[in-house]
């Protein structure tokens, strides 16, 4: 694989950046020049080698540093990781899915030995070597969701399924796009999506819920979502909103290319077999405008998409303060040439 893990920060001096080789594997979310809201769910089947879709859970050069940032968030605010009491079986389901996937897909970094319920987990990049008894939480240093959640990039929530609804009854959420796990835990699918504009009226969530209620074991699905973030900050939580929202005021025409980041979430949805719950993985990717425009197709398309956003979305994603500056920065990269379909680079 030859992954070299970068040593970088997502706060204070913000040393995060993508290596040149990492840029082209960014999951650029816009498949056409016009913005259009859609459920865009597709089977989470293995994608091309080297792409972020190659494996169910993508590990990249930011892994070690992201896990360090997560540990800092959890130390400051333990409520970012919560599970209601009836979710213990689902926590073990999640641990099993993540450990078996990582050990299979990245054998040079992760190893799992299983002998009945006696398990041995080795995580080389983080230096973890843990023997434990599967389904016995007292043999792990953290509850199962937190134990494995501290070792996998991306946020995770677990949805219990009952009464034809999905209930977000557990999660480890430290790099969210401005929503609070502590506030939303226990809500149903419509409730936790409550603040999202336009989509309810379009029936998007009703269709998505019906689809997810019938999600099958062994047939995961994925979709991409996006927003924009100032500075490569992972912890854009409502809890700390008063500490990071003023970043938006620091954008100038001179620094917009470095400061404004497109933040893409690859969301994976997996039926968990023992608990009948659904694991929702929210794997985030950050890239500055400056790096985005190094791919000519993205440089052309991004300004076109940003210009076509409905006002409700500009407000919901809080882009208002700097969208014009971003458009002005991007304008020279749109030479008017047609773009090819799909999100990937040409």
């Amino acid at each position: 694989m030859g992954l070299t893990f970068r040593n970088e920060t997502f706060r204070d001096d913000f040393t995060y950046t993508n290596s040149p080789s990492n840029i082209r594997r960014f999951p650029f979310p816009f498949v056409e020049d016009q913005y259009r809201y859609s459920v865009n769910i597709e089977p989470h089947t293995p994608g091309p080698k080297g792409s972020p879709f190659e494996h169910h859970f993508d590990v990249d050069e930011h892994y070690v540093s992201e896990m360090r940032d997560r540990a800092m968030v959890l130390a400051a605010d333990p409520l970012r990781c919560q599970a209601l009491p009836h979710m213990m079986t689902a926590q073990w389901d999640m641990l099993e899915l993540l450990m078996t996937s990582l050990a299979r897909d990245y054998p040079e970094h992760f190893t799992l030995h299983r002998d009945g319920t006696a398990w041995h987990w080795i995580n080389r990049p983080l230096g973890i070597d843990q023997k434990f008894t599967f389904l016995d939480a007292s043999t792990l240093p953290y509850p199962p969701m937190e134990f494995i959640g501290r070792q996998v990039q991306g946020d995770f929530s677990i949805q219990d399924q009952r009464d034809n609804q999905l209930w977000m009854d557990a999660g480890i959420i430290t790099s969210q796009a401005d929503w609070s796990l502590d506030f939303d835990v226990g809500m149903n699918f419509f409730e936790w999506h409550g603040p999202v504009p336009l989509a309810h009226e379009a029936g998007v969530f009703e269709r998505a819920l019906k689809f997810l209620l019938n999600l099958q074991i062994g047939k995961p699905v994925r979709r991409l979502n996006w927003t924009m973030t100032i500075n490569p900050r992972l912890d854009t939580s409502p809890e700390n909103y008063h500490k990071w929202a003023s970043d938006r005021m620091t954008v100038t025409p001179e620094n917009v290319g470095q400061k404004v980041h497109l933040r893409v979430e690859m969301q994976g949805l997996f039926r968990l077999p023992r608990s009948n719950a659904i694991l929702f993985s929210i794997r985030g990717y950050l890239m500055s405008l400056e790096q985005i425009v190094t791919v000519p197709k993205w440089g052309r398309r991004l300004p076109r998409v940003l210009a076509s956003l409905p006002p409700e979305l500009v407000e919901y994603k809080s882009l208002g303060r700097y969208r014009d500056m971003a458009l002005a920065y991007l304008a020279p990269y749109d030479d008017g040439a047609p773009t090819s379909p799909g999100g990937g680079p040409d």
Partner: peptide, 14 residues
């Protein structure tokens, strides 16, 4: 207007 039944409260944000 975002409301949590578990907390019996609306959300207040700076």
């Amino acid at each position: 207007d975002h409301y949590s039944r578990r907390l019996a409260a609306f959300q207040g944000v700076c």
